[in-house]
Design a protein around this nucleic acid. Sequence first.
RNA 1: CGGGGCGUAGCGCAGUCCGGUUAGCGCGCUUGCUUUGGGAGCAAGAGGCCCUGGGUUCGAAUCCCAGCGCCCCGACCA
Length: 479
Amino acid sequence: MADEKLPTRAENFAEWYNQLVLKADLADYAPVRGCMVVKPYGWALWENCMSALDKRFKETGHVNAAFPTLIPMSFFEKEKEHVEGFSPELAVVTHGGGEKLEEPLVVRPTSETIIGYMYSKWIKSWRDLPVLINQWGSVLRWELRTKLFLRTAEFYWQEGHTAHATAEEAKEEMFRILDAYTDFAVNEAALPVIKGQKSETERFAGAQITTSIEGMMQDKRALQSATSHYFGQNFAKAFEIQFVDQNNTLQFCETTSWGLSTRMIGAIIMTHGDDQGLVLPPRLAPIQAVIVPIYKNDDEKSRVMAVADRVFMELKAAGIRIKMDDRENVSSGFKFNDWEMRGVPVRVEIGPKDVEKNSVALARRDKPGREGKSFVQQAGLVDTINQLLVDIQASLLKRATEYRDANIHDPKDYEELKQVVQDGWALSYWCESKECEAKVKEDTKATTRNIPFEQPDHGGTCIVCGKPSKRKVYFAKAY
RNA sequence: CGGGGCGUAGCGCAGUCCGGUUAGCGCGCUUGCUUUGGGAGCAAGAGGCCCUGGGUUCGAAUCCCAGCGCCCCGACCA
């Protein structure tokens, strides 16, 4: 329950975030270091993310399945880059049933290996392709520094794994999913993310191409919100995923994988939240509107509740996710603050005055104080609230987009780049050499986020070394 | 793994330097009454292996030794 105020975002953004997650009742710390418990309210938000994404996966021909949590250790040694990338953060099971295991088992940090192994058994012919499987589950990475939702040891996500006959098809798949992620982020979560390709240093262990969507948080740090990878034949060769093509020739498959995690919830919090607490986009909010009935005595209570109950039934019947706050032991003022902390988009206040005037008071979460309050007729309330939810969704996206654009800079030279990435992003030409990338990181702690697909129609010169450069890249400090 | 901080009621802390009867405070919780349009008030209650183990002492939350755990800042990462 929201029992006291948050630090302001300006005061201490990190602490604002930590306390908000707990006070909005999204999650709690688990007894194991770095692990979190996702509480019912947080899980309801994740469920809404899941169904919006799952719908998009199904629409593009994907099916769900479930692969095991435990993976033989030897699987990780089959792909060189993959093992280098993941071995430091593996959790390993060495005993079972009271006996030491012959081969240690890894708690999956990601499932390319086990799924690759299974695909090698399932795929024989070009007729078996493509295989388009997704799984919803959790994975475990022994992270050294954790933060609720942004980086926990165990986290919930979906991971899609696909196998194709040709490189073209596999790359198309990677982009198709990246587009689905972007559509979800923009139109469901109201996050104006940027699509692009990761640099060689930043890409996934074992991938040939990694693409990502990147969002700007209110502290102007970047958050990689989802990734989609093209592996070429790397995993197919490591796990012998082969098929006979139409010319009766044995070929290796081309594979992809892609994932979006509960980290998305962190992105929503840090993009839309304000000093009063969470602000949820209506399309994903577990509760879209809450009714707070206000009364002084039994007589008022019976009159107010008659109206409140009727309004509740109407809104519910119209498909609005509605909650009645009929708690008797806390004041109205407390309830207002409590629901603001939890980010409910619309609050419906109904008191004796409203009963008399056939009105209700509406408060929209995206606009604080008096500005967000309006007094409307009970008649037509379903339409009024539906419209308000649409408005809020749009205004959150607009606000976040304007904020992002206002904080992306085009520095003139390297000196200016060093300055702007301290409190914003730079979009600059880069020669794509590791040396220049490393220099920026060394000097500023900013890394390349991605090379956006939208590029100017002409090249330029690298902001670091001055050599000719074809494409611009985003530099930013990241989570 | 380096640097810093901290383990005392469900949560947040004081008390520890300088050992001494019954270990406090705020919030929360329980019960009752009054309240309720922006975080209510009063009253009465419940709730403690003072992180663990060992030592010093007539006596340890307090001093000493060892261990465990957590948080923050770095290196590593969705």
